[in-house]
């Protein structure tokens, strides 16, 4: 059961003020409960929460490497089963660890069908190393390795569709969530943890430092992503989308203008062509997941 009063992630961690991933960590543990073992990848969250000996984690926690959290979790789950133990095993990893370097281990763990919940806190770039693009970086976002310039509009590729990839592995429960909707997030964590087999949850976790906005706006940015259709909160059961959050969509420029990583689309001149391409991504999302609320005239 989700327990909002449960505090398993402690004060004193070194995340930036208003950190989306830090908020995600707190909410995840409220949804998962104390009977959990967390496996972390190398990344921002690992670094801001566990400088020896100051761990912020009040549940058992392990970090091995950048790319192997799901394999480590496989071993933990097998050992627990062998020992007759009942703790739930969660991976909490960044998007670089998930979309890019960890793909092999994730695919293996999901194919083998371990009873684990893999949670990606998605801040859409390699933030720990200084905002480099990952497979989760959205189209046209300017990062330090996909900078906007005279011959570039930023990241050239759309975001990889990880939920579909893991659904295709036969994952019984795949969902997306956002720190901007905490109750929904906690409920999805609980459902993922309670569902036997490998489940995947991808959490939109805005990063004020990497995306370029004030820390107090973390949830507002998260809400705008959903309100514009650039992020869709949905649930898939056995590969079928069973639920998606419906919205009265706003134009994408409201989301883009609020972040420095898209500033080049508006300055020195508004780039209608590129903004239209991003609008088309949102339109495609809206159609695919059926999120538009039809307003009565």
């Amino acid at each position: 059961m989700v327990d909002k009063s449960l505090e398993l992630f402690e004060c004193g961690h070194r995340a930036c003020g208003g950190c989306g991933p830090a908020l995600a960590a707190r909410l995840i543990l409220k949804g998962a409960g104390a009977d959990s073992i967390v496996v972390a990848s190398t990344g921002c969250m690992e670094v801001f929460s566990t400088p020896y000996p100051e761990t912020a984690w009040k549940v058992p926690w392990i970090h091995s490497l950048f790319e192997n959290a799901s394999a480590v979790a496989s071993g933990i789950e097998a050992a627990l089963k062998r020992q007759g133990r009942t703790e739930k095993v969660l991976c909490i990893c960044g998007d670089g660890a998930t979309f890019d370097i960890g793909m092999l281990c994730i695919s293996g763990a999901f194919e083998r069908g371990h009873d684990i919940t893999y949670i990606c806190y998605d801040n859409e770039a390699y933030m720990n190393t200084g905002v480099q693009r990952s497979g989760a970086t959205p189209y046209d976002a300017s990062t330090t390795t996909s900078p906007a310039g005279k011959a570039s509009f930023g990241n050239k590729r759309p975001k990889k569709d990880m939920p579909q990839i893991l659904a295709a592995h036969g994952a019984p429960y795949v969902a997306t969530a956002s720190v901007a909707y905490p109750n929904d997030l906690m409920q999805k964590v609980e459902r993922a943890v309670e569902t036997p087999g490998p489940c995947y949850l991808q959490i939109h976790a805005p990063c004020s430092t990497g995306w370029g906005f004030e820390g107090g706006k973390t949830m507002e940015i998260g809400k705008l992503a959903i309100q514009t259709g650039l992020w869709v909160n949905f649930e898939m059961v056995d590969g079928e989308v069973v639920k998606a959050k419906k919205v009265v969509r706003k134009p994408v420029n409201e989301y883009l203008m609020a972040q420095k990583r898209f500033r080049h689309l508006f300055k020195p001149a508004r780039n209608e062509e590129e903004i239209a391409k991003i609008q088309a991504i949102a339109d495609a999302n809206a159609e695919k997941y059926g999120i538009d609320i039809e307003l009565k005239k």
Binding site: I62, S64, A71, S74, L104, S107, G108, A109
Partner: peptide, 27 residues
């Protein structure tokens, strides 16, 4: 009486051993 994990690579093989050992099993 062992769990035999048929993993995807040697990299995952030893990574799973890290997890299982950390969880208190001989691996």
């Amino acid at each position: 009486e062992s769990d035999y994990l048929t993993v995807d690579s040697e990299f995952s093989a030893l990574s799973a051993c890290v997890g299982a050992s950390a969880a208190g099993s001989r691996v």
